[in-house]
Design a protein around this nucleic acid. Structure first.
Length: 556
RNA sequence: GGCCCAUUGGAGAAGUGGCUUAACUCACAUGCCUUUCACGCAUGCAUUCAUGGGUUCGAAUCCCGUAUGGGUCACCA
């Protein structure tokens, strides 16, 4: 007769440590009352997902708010899907958004007393726990091949039974230890399964910080906890790691809710207290093909990858602000009251979190991004735009490097006033928006037809332009300059203001607005630009005259 | 299909039985202002809270059914 203890020793002969040893190695944390220990546990399978940024933002917030600890754990147990270097990348992207862990996996090294924080380096810890479960009779080796499993599944489908490895279908659960040892010694490959004592007809009560109390069917699946490659599955690793890393609150995506019964039973079987859970709603998007909502998909949606916003040159704070409005809608009111400053002081609460996945709203992101950029000084704009362009945008980098001061002058137009214009939401489209300030780019722009108002003939345009060229002074302040332009417009048949024009439309060719538009299009090639007065100040009379002459000759 | 979760305007939402003729923000529209666009200011945008029934003097708010949407059912996390 082979006992479970003997079986465990045969499967894991090298494992001498016990659960008690681990308990001593990873003692309870000494933290103030109410402090929460949270964790972000990504798999190194690609770039940072917008949903992951959301989750880690909440983790960081909750830990900071409660004077607790936020750590990162790399879940690299799926060796097949692992992408080299993505762990480091994840961490460096989090840092861009000012989400910095207190301990754990930091990209190039681990920090903290509860490590290692990379799951593949924790294999022996999991083995200790699994050995313990085998000894207790709560885990057993399973020799079923993928084909056998497939057959079981087909059977269940036919008989309209729940799919899975449980009850009478769990054939390896009924093997004797003698049979197990024999097959192991023959070299048959195996996994370790958890022995569930549950029944899916029973309901268990669970609590979630976001969803509150609800009932869910008990777990009855003998799930795999130890794969044939020697690493644990997610469920088991979660249980062991969050216990020994002393996580108080597990914050993760809603897709995990349905495996909660597994986790509850796992913690019970180990004799551990389960952490608190907060299952966050996922960020959605309307699928253009079906018209239905679906989870933001990395493959289908560019905005699912955080790198998309970085490459486009959005200020990172804007994405965080936007994500906070999804997290707690009262954040919006709060941030308005605080003039878009010090968002880190906002107090987040799970109870104010919406239960439904929000549709990603790029328009609202743009709104926040404009608010953020408008508050930056020209020096800050220069610094951040330079950093961005060095990394992502050679075209913009070229423009900035030609003359940093010139770039700052451009970006500073009407910036240092009480209600500045909010023209810019990201750096990515700067070459398009301010390109006309640069002669070579301007020369390219006017190769295309200019968007003049069709009600004006070429003659009227040329005439007005040459009058402006000869009559406009560059030495006046803005007000007098505008009066100067009004006077020139007046002598060429343009009304000085809307009222005058509306009172007697036949008497005029147009309004002073039309004059300004002609000049703007001529100088910038665009219907909209920053304040014309400052554009002309920056360009200078010689360049403005050159452009006017060029356009006049083009009109002929 | 089973199980779980959700359902207030184009979007995010407030609302926890009478204070709601449903707040606020984005978007959109209009007007004023105006050198364009913007900024700013003002106004408009759900007679109605998926739907049917019930409880109640009274329901977006409580109960039940239905519909719709989402999640999940791996040696992936």
């Amino acid at each position: 007769m082979i006992t479970n203890k003997q079986l465990a020793d045969i499967i894991f002969p090298d494992i001498k440590e016990t659960i008690d040893d681990l308990e001593k190695r990873y003692p309870e944390r000494n933290l103030p009352e109410g402090a929460e220990v949270t964790r972000f546990a990504p798999s190194p399978t690609g770039f940072l997902h917008t949903g992951s940024l959301f989750t880690s933002l909440i983790c960081r917030k909750v830990a900071t708010q409660s004077k607790g600890i936020f750590y990162v754990r790399l879940e690299d147990t799926d060796t097949k899907r692992e992408i080299q270097g993505s762990g480091e990348q994840l961490l460096s992207q989090l840092k861009i958004f000012n989400i910095v862990p207190d301990e754990g996996y930091l990209g190039d090294h681990d920090e903290g007393q509860y490590g290692p924080y990379v799951q593949s380096k924790r294999a022996n810890i999991y083995r200790v726990a699994i050995k313990y479960l085998i000894e207790k009779g709560r885990a057993y080796p399973c020799f079923c091949s993928p084909e056998e499993l497939e057959e079981i599944r087909r059977d269940q489908e036919k008989n309209k039974q729940n799919p899975g490895y449980y009850g009478e279908y769990a054939k390896c659960a009924r093997l004797t230890n003698e049979e197990r040892v024999e097959r192991i010694q023959k070299g048959e490959p195996f996994v370790i399964r958890f022995r569930s004592t549950g029944n899916h007809l029973n309901k268990i009560k669970v609590n979630d910080l976001v969803h509150g109390d609800f009932e869910i069917a008990q777990n009855d699946q003998d799930i795999v906890i130890y794969k044939s490659d020697g690493l644990p599955t997610y469920h088991f690793a979660h249980c062991v790691d969050d216990h020994f890393m002393r996580t108080t609150t597990v914050i993760r995506g809603e897709e995990w809710i349905s495996s909660l019964p597994i986790h509850v039973e796992l913690f019970e079987a180990m004799g551990w207290k389960a952490p608190r859970y907060a299952h966050l709603p996922v960020i959605m998007k309307v699928d253009e093909a079906t018209g239905n909502k679906r989870k933001l998909s990395k493959r289908l949606d560019s905005e699912a990858a955080v790198s998309y916003f970085l490459e486009d040159g959005y200020p990172p704070e804007a994405l965080i602000m936007y994500l906070m409005t999804i997290a707690n809608s009262n954040f919006e009111e709060w941030i308005f009251a605080n003039k878009f400053e010090h968002m880190e002081d906002f107090v987040f609460s799970f109870s104010k979190m919406s239960l439904e996945g929000a549709l990603f709203d790029i328009g609202k992101l743009n709104f926040f991004a404009r608010e953020i950029l408008v508050k930056k000084s020209k020096e800050e704009i220069y610094k951040t735009a330079l950093e961005y362009s060095q990394k992502y945008n050679p075209e913009l980098l070229d423009l900035i490097e030609r003359n940093p001061k010139y770039f700052m002058d451009i970006m500073n137009i009407e910036r240092e006033k009480e209600n500045p214009r909010k023209d810019y939401e990201k750096y990515g489209n700067l070459p398009e928006l301010i390109g006309f300030f640069y002669e070579d780019r301007y020369n390219n722009i006017i190769k295309n037809p200019l968007p003049f108002n069709e009600k004006f003939t070429k003659e009227v345009i040329s005439e007005t332009l040459s009058a402006l060229r000869d009559g406009l002074s560059y030495d006046l302040d803005e007000q007098n300059w505008f009066a100067n332009m009004k006077a020139i417009g007046g002598s060429h048949g343009f009304a000085a203001n809307n009222k005058e024009y509306k009172a007697n439309p036949e008497a005029f060719k147009g309004t002073i607005g039309d004059v300004a538009e002609l000049l703007r299009i001529t100088l910038t090639g665009r219907k909209n630009s920053p304040n014309l007065y400052y554009v002309m100040q920056i360009l200078g009379k010689a360049e403005c005259d050159r452009r006017i002459n060029l356009v006049i000759s083009l009109l002929k």
